[in-house]
């Protein structure tokens, strides 16, 4: 088990490095940072000199090696756009994204599972069918529109919630949280709904179909034949078997929550990593882009590992296999 975690982590490091390498080879398609860094009056020679100073004239793999060398010492360079060390910049933005992503994931999971179970149990009911139709709309509505729609309803019309930003935050060590102030909590509502909505519909539809599948299985029929009450059959026997695919998808979705956070953070001017990344791409801020992408790869590696570990907890059939080292 322990060896398995260690090996997964080692593979994870490899994945992160490969992601960074791919990222690096892509950056020239994003643009030339000198174009954003040098002012209008810079001469051709000035720009050339800046390019040299940034090491942009070196071959890609040398630039990459330099970046990795620094990264190994937790030095991710200086942001071209902000002139500040990237590590600190990311650390400053991390709490906003984590609070948003975790709350969105919780919202999506809790409401998604509840609605999914409901829609499966009452699959012929009117409400369940309305929920299903709404979820279909939800899946096809772009995040941006959901966000703007919420802003116009709750900020412009009703004036209940702020349209942008994180509100007042409180510092706890290097962490900042919006959960401890009223304006912080109010500011979280719309971004969390927006970011979580897509995942919610996804999880809900998945739970419903998995649950229907589970309810058709023999052990459910047998549980009923044993006289197990219907609620227990549904919420203990069927739901638990539903959880394995749900956790797989939810785990992988956590990665995409971070990816979708880019749009949500932009719409709500949420000062997280996604908004930082968008600005960095537009500026071709290579150190920030590279570090961010490595961070995202890291999140994927960790969530994958966590998903595996949760499998291990839920499904006894895997335990023997895991001990032998499942890939």
């Amino acid at each position: 088990m322990f060896a398995y975690i260690l090996r997964s982590l080692a593979q994870g490091v490899l994945v992160i490095i490969v992601v960074a390498l791919i990222a690096f080879s892509m950056f020239r398609f994003v643009g030339d940072p000198v174009a954003s860094l040098a002012g209008q009056e810079a001469s051709v020679a000035d720009r050339e000199e800046l390019s040299e100073r940034l090491g942009l004239n070196d071959p890609i793999f040398i630039q990459f090696a330099r970046f990795l060398g620094g990264a190994a010492q937790a030095d991710f360079g200086i942001s071209y756009r902000q002139g500040r060390p990237v590590a600190g910049l990311l650390a400053e933005r991390l709490p906003a994204t984590v609070e948003l992503a975790v709350l969105s994931a919780l919202f999506a999971l809790i409401v998604g599972i509840a609605l999914g179970v409901y829609a499966a149990i009452r699959r012929r009911g009117v409400i369940a069918n309305i929920v299903m139709v709404l979820s279909l709309i939800g899946v096809s509505l772009p995040t941006f529109l959901i966000g703007i729609g919420l802003i116009y309803i709750f900020a412009v019309e009703l004036r209940w919630l702020p349209s942008f930003g994180r509100g007042e935050t409180i510092k706890i060590g290097w962490w900042t949280t919006g959960l401890l102030t009223e304006s912080g909590r109010k500011s979280l509502i719309m971004p969390v709904l927006t970011l979580g909505f897509f995942q919610l519909t996804l999880i809900m539809r998945l739970v419903r179909s998995e649950m229907l599948e589970a309810l058709r299985s023999e052990y459910i029929r047998f549980a009923r034949a044993r006289g197990v009450p219907e609620r227990v059959v549904q919420l203990r026997h069927a739901l638990r078997n539903t959880m394995i695919p749900v956790i797989t998808i939810a785990g992988l979705q956590l990665g995409s929550v971070i990816a979708f956070a880019i749009v949500t953070e932009t719409v709500f001017q949420w000062p997280g990593l996604g908004a930082l990344f968008v600005n960095s791409v537009q500026f071709v801020d290579i150190p920030v882009m590279a570090t961010y992408l490595m961070f995202v790869a890291f999140v994927f590696v960790v969530t994958n590992l966590l998903v595996d570990l949760v499998y291990y907890l839920i499904d006894p059939r895997l335990r023997g296999g895991l001990r032998r080292g499942r890939p």
């Binding site: 034949a225 044993r226 006289g227 638990r240 839920i314 059939r317």
Partner: peptide, 18 residues
């Protein structure tokens, strides 16, 4: 389960694996 016990065909799928 109390007054009528039931045995199904496939023992591999009758029991909840979890």
């Amino acid at each position: 389960g109390r007054r009528i016990g039931v045995i199904f065909q496939d023992p591999l799928t009758s029991l909840n694996p979890l």
